[in-house]
């Protein structure tokens, strides 16, 4: 059982959804990222996803693209990702890495899974790794007792949902709508339908991401999901802040709001 499994079980016992926050390593800077992580943990976030910034992020909208550009220009690589992961796990929150596949393959599949475990990580979210290409990855995650977390979409058919969720560990990442990351005015009704379809084929916790930015949205998702994932909304605050202090304060305020939201849904 990973620390992520325990956190999600605890939230289930408290009859509430978990709050999961995403921040790319090296953003807004190497040190700044570590402060954001502490701020998120202090504000009541249950789990933290550390993003591995990538040159060709086809699943991401303009906000995360900009953060990735800034991070890569600052020289972020695997070292900084594992440093941030370690910092996140040391705060006591469950921590995972979210990354496109190529950085894992380049680092070495076995070695990557081992480094995740060595730095206290509970799992890895791989949004562009299909189950057909997963053989070595699944062996590596199993050998290192970490969760392989797959993303499913509203277009994923039931038969495939069964196959993908059967290979997933930790939680099933449900993309709320068809599209890329970024804040949206409303979370699509597709999300509810997708979550109920996942429930029919899997007992794993289901966490919903893509487009969530407000307490109200968190509350409405918490009514039926086991977790709510927020990324772009935090990054936007950091990009727009006049200085680092103001950015951290804004992140803290939003995280506290969202932490209330995930407790109000049921």
């Amino acid at each position: 059982m990973t620390s992520l499994d325990s956190v999600l079980e605890k939230c289930r016992a408290e009859n509430r959804a978990a709050l999961i926050a995403y921040i790319p390593a090296g953003f807004p800077s190497r040190q700044g990222c570590l402060k954001v992580i502490q701020t998120l943990a202090d504000a009541g976030v249950d789990a933290i996803e550390i993003g591995f910034p990538y040159s060709d992020p086809v699943m991401d909208g303009p906000v995360i693209q900009e953060a990735a550009d800034i991070s890569l220009k600052g020289g972020t690589g695997a070292t900084e990702v594992f440093e941030a992961l370690k910092a996140a796990s040391e705060t006591g929150t469950a921590s995972v890495v979210m990354t496109y596949w190529n950085p894992i393959e380049r680092y070495g599949v076995e070695k990557f899974a081992a480094s995740i475990a060595d730095n206290g990580g509970a799992g890895v979210i791989t949004p562009d790794l299909t189950i057909e290409e997963s053989e070595t990855w699944l062996a590596a995650t199993k050998a290192n007792s970490i969760n392989p977390i797959y993303v499913v979409a509203p277009s994923t058919k039931d038969a495939r949902l069964t196959r993908v969720t059967s290979m997933t560990g930790g939680f099933v990442y449900a993309a709320s709508s068809m599209g890329v990351t970024g804040t949206r005015e409303s979370v699509s009704i597709d999300a509810k339908d997708l979550v109920s379809r996942i429930r029919k084929v899997s007992d794993l916790p289901v966490c919903v991401g893509l487009g969530v930015s407000t307490r109200e949205q968190a509350k409405s998702l918490a009514a039926y999901a086991d977790g709510v994932i927020v990324g772009s909304a935090f990054i936007k605050l950091l990009l727009n802040a006049k200085d680092e202090q103001a950015g951290l304060l804004a992140v803290s305020q939003l995280a506290k709001e969202l932490a209330l939201g995930v407790r109000e849904g049921r």
Binding site: N102, T130, R160
Partner: peptide
């Protein structure tokens, strides 16, 4: 699955699989 030896295949978001 569209492999040429070790090359090819599919590395895409689930949203595109269908």
């Amino acid at each position: 699955l569209g492999h040429f030896g070790q090359y090819g295949g599919r590395f895409v978001p689930e949203a595109l699989i269908e």
